[in-house]
Every structure is written in structure tokens, then in C-alpha cells.
Design a protein around this nucleic acid. Structure first.
Lengths: 221, 221, 221, 221
DNA sequence: GATGAATGAGTCTTCATTCAT
DNA sequence: CATGAATGAAGACTCATTCAT
């Protein structure tokens, strides 16, 4: 890590300008887009603020007009990207969608969604796990969003349990286990090179695993 | 990222001492131990070769006498640590241990082992996932070791299937899904702050999930 | 040789500011001047980028804002210095200046010019020969410039031959031999400690040698 | 340049062991041979004492038993190599060989010898000019040897002048100019890539140049 | 005498961040 | 507000030389 000059704190409150004017907002967005591009291509550490500025057709100094530092840019992108992925899943978890129809099919569709959701910005997904354990703010942000997804699963399990569709001993841990498993399977499948025909089998098996865990009826022998 | 000096290639002797004498072996070990400490405390990027040398009570140059660069030290530690964790699990997967007795109990013990195994050097575990997606050599090393664990699961599923204990449609994907799920659940449980009483429930649920996926008999309703 | 850090490639912007603003141009010039000073005093290997920056009253980073590395600074200076020397000579070789008047006198003046031209930045001249055989880029640059001087000699020999002033069997090799001889005699005379009264005699003898080689009339017996 | 630990001077006089026993002498020679190889391949700066030791199948420490430092090894090799080259030339300058026969032919043979002599260890020749201007001891050594060659030329010119074969106004400067010219032409021809058929023409022209400078008779019109 | 492990000062280079214009 | 030149702390790595065994 380079010089990392001391952040001059206190006195006035020069802060980071909050865009109120249209042009400002547009510039800020351009920087963000450029950063996504660069981060996708090179990862976080390998990306430089200079390159981001260049791609955004903006001066380095201007970048610092919108973000306090490089990390903040990454944080915002990671948050936004991760949230978007999880939102897709959370949406698909709305109880009202699960009260009728073939559960196993829905579970499979859900797993499918989880994987597809991660395909959008795989490079950012990579950064999530790269930074997760080393940057407390990333961890916090990710855990908050994950928490929402877990809650959505919990709500679903409650709703379906009431209808007698599912039968789960301990809903919180079940929600956590399901979420965690699917998250990592999806990440590894998307970010690694999955052996050709293996993808479908993996989705099937994952769905089967979840279905058996939550459904009331015995597995199709 | 700092200066990142170029490896000057050629010049015959790679400069990496292959320890044959006792003193040499001891020094190499000291460096490795120091590096584990430093990496545990600060993570990879934040650790410096100077700090490692200092902890090992050795000159920087000596460090470079045993390892071509900082990355190589990390790689060796990651490999060794990760391999040791997986070995514990692989050992517990030996088919002969599974042919009789309560399967559910054994699955639970296995999950337990997976978690305990990761507790040894959690900081290194952190580095594994930090570097996994960005350092091809880390990825390769980890995938190789993971592959062995997955194979061990496959062998177990074959053996138990023959005895009529388990009944799995697609063994390869099942092995992969089980391994991937447990790996990440274990990592997250160990590296994150698990809500107090949640740990046991998580282990139970995970075990239940795996048991239901592979066992022949219907789940205890 | 020091750490010799690797050029991290890619990342878009090479980091080399191409000066367009006035301040920029001035800084670049300051760095170059400082580098000439330092190189003159210490030679290439013994000079450090830190010292160059200090002399230029500039931060190290600024140096790297204008030049990709230390070698590039040296290369530019060497090229510029050597080219300037050779240009003086090439100018003096313009055929129109040689068509009348005393040839022997003109040859002497030429040799004189060759020596005087090298006196400007002798330290850089030293670096030229220090790096010539070990740095391909230096070699290339120097050979290119030398080539132009040799061509100028060739043109002169052609023109004077047509006028019946000179009589040379093989113009290319003659131009090469003359250039090479004078170049080294001048370098050695300037960079070595020439025995006092020897200088004039050396110039005279060199001129005589060249004159006899190219002139039509027999040497003044 | 690396650490360059202070040479501990004074007290006893550990000095550099002078080989008196046969084995010692042989080891010293092995080191020297190895050094020639390495220097030839990589040049001085790029060569390391470790590599030299390795090639000589000797421990680094042993190298320092025979030579005070890396520079001394280089110095001895440069001196020996350069002296050998010049000796060949000096031998060919013995007056008794020049008192009869075709002078022009002999001059040509001499130039030829000068070039051939440099072909033996061109890499060392390169080092000579690389270090000549930056290492005072190299300069001194080379100048001393050059001085002998120049003296030999002077003696030859005296002898031939007495016989009426040559007619030179100022013998010292003539000897210097001839030597310097041929030395550099030979070096450039050997170390550079000489344009194919150019070599012969260069030798011829050089010989012609020298012949015309020293011989009494007018050049063959 | 030999060995080769150990030393550590010295270099180059990077890049997040600041601030004069 | 934008610009982009300037800053400079920080870090990886090299290698001649020493010295304990």
C-alpha cells in the first residue's frame, strides 16, 4: 500500500460533496461505472484511482470530490452489487409465491436464480470475498445484506410451515445453512471453471439437498 | 501494493537455499513460523517481509535465502495449513469407518471435525479466501487439495451405496455440493462471530441436511 | 545492482506525464538538468533516483511522473548529448563548405570540432561508452546517430570526389574508418588526461592521417 | 550496488592468501576461469560472486580467500586479457620483422591481428570499455598496457625511419593516433555487428590509412 | 583451508492522496 | 468546482561480504 497520507481531519468540514446538481450526479455515476469496469478487470488492489479517473474522463482530484477514498468507491460498488444479487433472491423468496405449485421446482428455480444473479459482475463478486475477511466495512455491509436474505428465508419457512408444506425443526439455523451453502456453491460455480456438464448436476443436487431438508414429505425414494 | 520488484531471472543459482544442514533447517522453520504469526495477525497484504524477518530474528536477506519471494512463503503456509485441515476431514471419511454404526451421528461428527479443523490457524484460513480468486497459484493449490477431499467423499458414497446404506443419484455432484457447503459453513462459522447458541444448531442442521441428502431411509418424520 | 523493481505493466495510463502545461514542462526540464548533473558527477550506476529528485527539488514520485524509469532518463540525456555532439560535426561536413579552400586546414578544423564537441558534457560521454555495450537501447541510439555522421562523411566524399578534390577507393568503409577513429581519439583525449603539449600534436597527426587518406595529391613530402 | 560492508582494515594482516601449494593454485585458476565465463556471459555488473563460485565448484567464502573482492577478480581478468591481446600486437611490431618486405602488406596483417586478437574474449573486451572510464584501476591498467603498445609502435617507427622506409613528423602522436584508431575500429568491428562484406573493406581502408600516414613514398595513385 | 548461512544497507518504484492554479 | 502536478511514505528484493562451524 502506498503513502497513505494522513487524512487531515477536523477544522471546517470540507467533507465529500453530496451531489445536488444534475451534472454532479452524472459525474459521480460516471466515476462509479468506470470503477466497476476497472475493478472487474483488475481486482481491487490492482486497480488505481488514476485509471478509474481516466476511464471516467475525470481528473483524479475530482474523484476525491465525490468519494473520500478508493475504499469508499469499492465499498459502494460492492454493496450495490451484492445487494442487487441478494435482492433478486429475496424477491424470489416472497412467501406468496410459494404457497402453491411444485416446491421442488421452485427450489430449483431459486438455486438457478442465485447462480444467475452472480453472473452479472463476477469480478465484483470476487472482490467481495477477497475483502470480506480483511475489510471490516465490507464484512459489515455484506453481513447486513446476507442477514436480509436469511430473514427472507426464515419468513418463507414460517409461512410454508404454517401451510404444512415444510417442516423444519430450527428455522434460523436452517435459513442460515441454506443461504450459506447456496451462496458459496453459486460463487464457486460462477467464479471457478465448472466442469462442463457438471453445472446442471450441481444445481439439481443442490436443489435436492434443500428440498429434502425443508419439505414435509419423504424424499422420492 | 508496494514496489513489487522484478524477479531478476537467470544468473544460475536461484538464491533459494535448499536446507540440508541442521542450522539451515532451523532457520527456514523459524522464518515459516514467524510468517505464520505475522500473516495471522495482519493478513497477507499488510504483512511485510521485514516484519517476518524481525520476528524470526533473522536478516531480510536470509528470508530470501529460503524463499524466492513473499508470495512463496504465503503459498507454502496456505498449502500446508489448508492441506492439514482437509487431511483431518479426509481421514474421517475413510469408508471402513462408515460401514456400521449410526450414520447421522457420524455425519455430525464429520461436520464437527470440519469446523474444528479450521480453528487452528483462522488467519491463514482468511488468507486462503482472500487470495483464492486473485492468485492463480493459491487457487490451484486449494483446488487440488479440495479435489482430494471431494474424491474421498465420492469413495465413501460408493462404498456405503454398495452396502445399501446410502442412496445417491449423482455421486460426483453430491460430493462437490456437500464439500462446498460444509467448507463455507465452517469457514464462516469460524471466521465470523457466530451468534452464541447458534453454533450447535448450525452443526445440527448442516448434519441433518447432509444426512437427508445421502441416506436411504426417509427422514425421521 | 539494487532491487531492480519490475515494471508493472498494463493498468492503462503509463504514469508518464506528457507535459503540456507550463509548470509541467519546467519540472521535466528541472529533472533532466538535475539528472545531467548527477550523472556527470557519479556515472550511471552510482547515481540514484533519490539524488536526482533531491537536486531537482522535486519528490521522487515526480521524477516517475515524467520518466518510466531511471534508464529512460539516462537514455534521453545520452541521446540528446550525443546527438548534439554529432550534429556539430555533421554541420561542419556539409559539402558546400568543402568545395573550395584549403582542404587540410578544413580537416584539421573538423578534428578540432570533434574534440571540442565532446567537451561539453564529458561525464555523459563517459556514460555513453559505459553503457554502449551493455544497454541495447543505448547502443541502438548511438549507432543511429553515428550512422548519420557516417552518411554525412560519405556525402562529402562523393561531392569532393566529383570535384576531383578527393580520391577514395571505397567510400563507405572510408567514412566508417574516419568516423570511428576520430570518435575514439576525441573521446580518449577529452576523457583521459592528455599529456600537456600532446594535444596539438594529436590533432595535427589525426588531421594528417585523414587528409592523406582522402586527398588526391600526394602528401607534401 | 549492494550492502558493501565495510572492509575491516588494519590489525593483523589476514590479507589474501597467496597460493603456494599446488591445490591452491589450481583452485585460484578455477575461480578465474569461472569468472571469465560468467563475465563473458553477463558482463560485470550482472555477474554475481555466488554464480562465479558455483561455476568454480567452490564456496563463496573460498573465492574471498583468493581475491579481496569481486572487482579484483575482474581487474585481474581484464588485465590479463587485454595484455594478451596487446602482446600479440606488440610481438608483431618487433622492428626486425619490418625491415624488409612489403610494408603495406605488413600493415594489413597487423590490423588483421588487432582484430583477431580481440575475438578471443569479446565479453571481457566489452567490460574493458564499460569499466574503463568509471573504474580508475581499470583505466590505469589498460593505459599501462596501451602505453607499451604505443611504445612498440614508436620503436618501430624509429627503426623504419632510420632505414628510410617511413617518414613521420611526430612519432609519439603518430603512434598514439594509430594505436587509438586501430583499437577502437577493432573493438567496434568485433563487438558490433559488422555489415557483412564490410569487414574486409574496413581492414583494407584502415591499413591504407596507416600506410599513407607513415610510408615515405607517395600513395599509389 | 573450506564451507555456505547469514547479514543488512541500499535501490528503485508505486500510488493514494493533496492542493495550487 | 475541476484539474492534474506534486508528494513521499512504504516495501520488496539484491548481493557483496563476513564469519561461525
Amino acid at each position: 500500500m502506498p503513502a497513505a497520507p494522513k487524512k487531515k481531519e477536523g477544522n471546517g468540514e470540507p467533507g465529500v460533496r453530496t451531489p445536488q446538481q444534475a451534472r454532479s450526479r452524472r459525474t459521480r455515476a460516471r466515476v462509479l461505472e468506470a470503477a466497476v469496469e476497472v475493478f472487474e478487470e483488475r481486482g481491487y488492489e490492482e486497480s488505481t484511482t488514476a485509471e478509474i479517473a481516466r476511464r471516467a474522463s475525470v481528473a483524479v482530484g475530482s474523484v476525491y470530490g465525490y468519494f473520500p477514498d478508493k475504499r469508499a468507491i469499492m465499498l459502494e460498488i460492492v454493496q450495490e452489487t451484492f445487494a442487487r444479487s441478494e435482492m433478486e433472491i429475496i424477491d424470489a423468496l416472497a412467501p406468496e409465491l410459494w404457497l402453491e405449485g411444485d416446491m421442488r421446482q421452485k427450489v430449483r428455480a431459486l438455486v438457478d436464480t442465485a447462480i444467475r444473479a452472480r453472473r452479472l459482475r463476477p469480478g465484483i463478486g470476487r472482490i467481495v470475498w477477497e475483502r470480506f475477511f480483511s475489510d471490516p466495512l465490507v464484512k459489515e455491509a455484506v453481513e447486513t445484506i446476507e442477514g436480509k436474505a436469511v430473514e427472507a428465508i426464515e419468513r418463507l419457512l414460517h409461512a410454508t410451515a404454517q401451510r404444512g408444506i415444510t417442516n423444519v425443526r430450527d428455522i434460523p439455523s436452517t435459513a442460515f445453512v441454506i443461504h450459506t451453502s447456496v451462496e458459496w456453491i453459486a460463487s464457486r460455480v460462477v467464479l471457478g471453471e465448472v466442469p462442463g456438464g457438471m453445472l446442471d448436476a450441481t444445481i439439481n443436487t443442490t436443489s435436492e439437498m434443500i428440498s429434502r431438508l425443508i419439505l414435509k414429505e419423504p424424499p422420492a425414494s
